[in-house]
Amino acid sequence: MVAVGEILLNALFQVLFDRLASPDLFSFVRQLGGGVDSELKKWEKKLRMIQAVLRDAEEKQLTDEAVKMWLDDL
């Protein structure tokens, strides 16, 4: 069974990805210049990696008690 916290965390990351991928945000960032665009892309990459780790952990928690405890603490 998936904990409520995990569902909320997953939803939070999905909202962040949706915001980062917004065409309006990219247009605004391009106007700012100064490397903000590359910084935004770095954050998007980091958040995608975090989401991948969380998805993997959600699957592994069914068979690995340590992973389940880690997710519960998170």
Score class of each variant (00 low, 15 high):
1 M>W: 05
3 A>Q: 12
3 A>I: 07
5 G>W: 03
5 G>H: 11
6 E>V: 08
7 I>D: 02
7 I>W: 03
9 L>G: 11
9 L>P: 00
10 N>P: 00
11 A>G: 04
11 A>R: 04
13 F>N: 05
13 F>W: 08
13 F>E: 04
14 Q>S: 15
15 V>H: 09
15 V>M: 10
15 V>D: 12
18 D>A: 14
21 A>C: 08
21 A>W: 03
22 S>V: 04
23 P>A: 13
24 D>R: 14
25 L>Q: 07
25 L>M: 13
26 F>C: 08
27 S>M: 07
27 S>D: 13
27 S>G: 12
28 F>Y: 14
29 V>E: 04
29 V>R: 02
30 R>G: 13
30 R>H: 14
30 R>L: 13
31 Q>V: 08
32 L>H: 10
32 L>D: 03
33 G>M: 08
39 E>T: 08
40 L>P: 03
41 K>I: 04
41 K>P: 00
42 K>Q: 04
42 K>D: 05
43 W>G: 02
44 E>N: 07
44 E>M: 06
46 K>I: 05
46 K>T: 09
47 L>N: 01
47 L>H: 00
47 L>Y: 03
48 R>K: 12
48 R>Y: 02
50 I>E: 04
51 Q>W: 00
53 V>L: 11
55 R>P: 00
55 R>G: 09
57 A>C: 15
58 E>L: 11
58 E>D: 14
59 E>P: 00
60 K>P: 00
61 Q>E: 13
62 L>E: 06
64 D>W: 05
64 D>H: 11
65 E>V: 13
66 A>G: 04
67 V>Q: 02
67 V>G: 02
68 K>I: 00
69 M>Y: 10
69 M>N: 15
70 W>C: 14
71 L>C: 07
72 D>Y: 15
73 D>C: 08
73 D>R: 13
74 L>G: 13
